[in-house]
């Protein structure tokens, strides 16, 4: 049963990801992405990461995509819509993707499934995922967590610096 769901979710994710990239219409791309995000959330659910699944939907599907839609609709994209493809370098892109895929295939054999961290699946199941995530983020991983917040701050400052009108 699990395998079936996993297969379904993965297949949809791959197909819709391709559609996002290949679609000529940016608005369509965004909508494809929405479908894709929901299925990613499904994967999280399969892994018993219900908190991540919720965040995925709220933040990505809810907030980011809406922003994307706003941005696209504010811009005039008529010319791009009539173009044959989005870029003319697609063979190269395809080659790059194929190469990365091949690399991944080659290395799969070396991947291990053992854990040497302190959070085994059993333990997570026992104290629930959200609690486990919270504990990990606010104890051992507090430093990366805080750094990430500074990165977001810099991103905001940077966006404002680059976007605001010249004062003088």
């Amino acid at each position: 049963m699990l395998e079936f769901f996993f297969g379904y979710l993965s297949l949809v994710i791959i197909i819709f990801s391709l559609l996002v990239v290949l679609s000529k219409n940016a608005i369509h791309s965004v909508l494809y992405m929405l479908v894709m995000f929901f299925h990613v959330a499904g994967i999280y659910l399969l892994l018993q990461a219900e908190f991540l699944a919720a965040v995925q939907i709220i933040v990505y599907a809810g907030a980011i995509l809406v922003l994307f839609l706003f941005a696209i609709m504010l811009l005039n994209l008529r010319e791009e819509l009539s173009a044959e493809q989005l870029t003319d370098g697609w063979p190269a892109s395809l080659a790059v993707v194929a190469g990365l895929l091949l690399t991944l295939m080659l290395s799969l054999g070396g991947f291990t499934t053992t854990f040497n961290g302190s959070w085994s699946p059993e333990k997570i199941k026992e104290i629930t995922f959200t609690k486990a995530l919270g504990q990990a983020l606010y104890t051992g991983y507090i430093l990366p967590f805080e750094v990430a917040s500074i990165i977001l701050l810099v991103a905001i400052v940077g966006a404002i610096v680059l976007a605001k009108r010249r004062l003088n």
Binding site: L143, P144, V147, I151, V154, V161, L162
Partner: peptide
């Protein structure tokens, strides 16, 4: 740790992207 490394790198890079484009006009 590679995670801290990556985040440090992103923090640096993000600031630099903005600084590179600092002469807006």
């Amino acid at each position: 740790d590679l995670i801290v490394l990556y985040l440090g790198l992103e923090l640096m890079a993000l600031s630099l992207y903005v600084l590179t484009g600092f002469i807006r006009h």
